[in-house]
Nucleic acid binder design. Structure first.
Lengths: 109, 109
DNA sequence: ATTGTATATCGTAATATTGCGATATACAAT
DNA sequence: ATTGTATATCGCAATATTACGATATACAAT
């Protein structure tokens, strides 16, 4: 076995889990925070900021890009990454929906 | 290698990624939604609701419990699971902080 | 004591993730 | 053309995750 049975779940559940999986790594959280912080775009500064090898950072950036959370444009020699506002806002909305369904009254266990 | 270099990152980044990883699976999203929906607690109904084997559900529940997102109390033969409101609210807060730092004005790329 | 029901754990196979050295690609400047 | 700089990709080893059958545990009812 060893592969998630996506057929069983709804589109929404699968999509949300995919986006969350993209964020669920400290390096990728740090990368996103950096991209947001330096509200202009950054690029290979990340390799210095975080203590990971260039190949590793590049791979994490790819995962974030594949998930749609960030976008990159070539800028001469370097590449400029920034948040994809549409996907970002979409995830934020889905999450607030997810958390919003819980009202902590029912404290049963 | 193959193991995350947690030493490099902040406590906050590690904690947030751990909690997100716990949610970042469609089955666990579905389990949490079920637990919230039937605002009283449920238990092995999940095995029927989702189409996964009992052992698999039990394992997912354990992961959610280890992360602290849910708590379980024995109730005769069965076990009653529900959201841990403290951790839940904590995660919600951390996430809103994370998403809140982004203001979409800077659409650079 | 035996049987049934509910849940947890063990062991294992299939697959995915993480990290990085080595190398490739792409462009700018000399 | 050569050199330097910035990123991406390949290939691989170490580790983690996913799913589940087989069992173990725990309690209730007969």
């Amino acid at each position: 076995m060893g592969l998630t049975k996506s057929e069983i779940f709804t589109e929404e559940q699968n999509r949300l889990s995919t986006l969350l999986k993209a964020i669920a790594h400290p390096a990728r959280i740090a990368i996103l925070q950096q991209i947001i912080k330096s509200n202009a775009c950054i690029c290979g500064d990340l390799v210095e900021e975080l203590g990971l090898a260039q190949a590793t950072i590049s791979q994490h950036l790819k995962e974030l890009k594949t998930a749609g959370l960030i976008q990159g444009t070539i800028e001469g020699v370097s590449v400029c990454y920034c948040i994809n506002p549409i996907v970002w806002k979409d995830l934020e909305k889905q999450l607030s929906g997810f958390f919003g369904t819980y009202n902590l009254k029912a404290d049963c266990c």
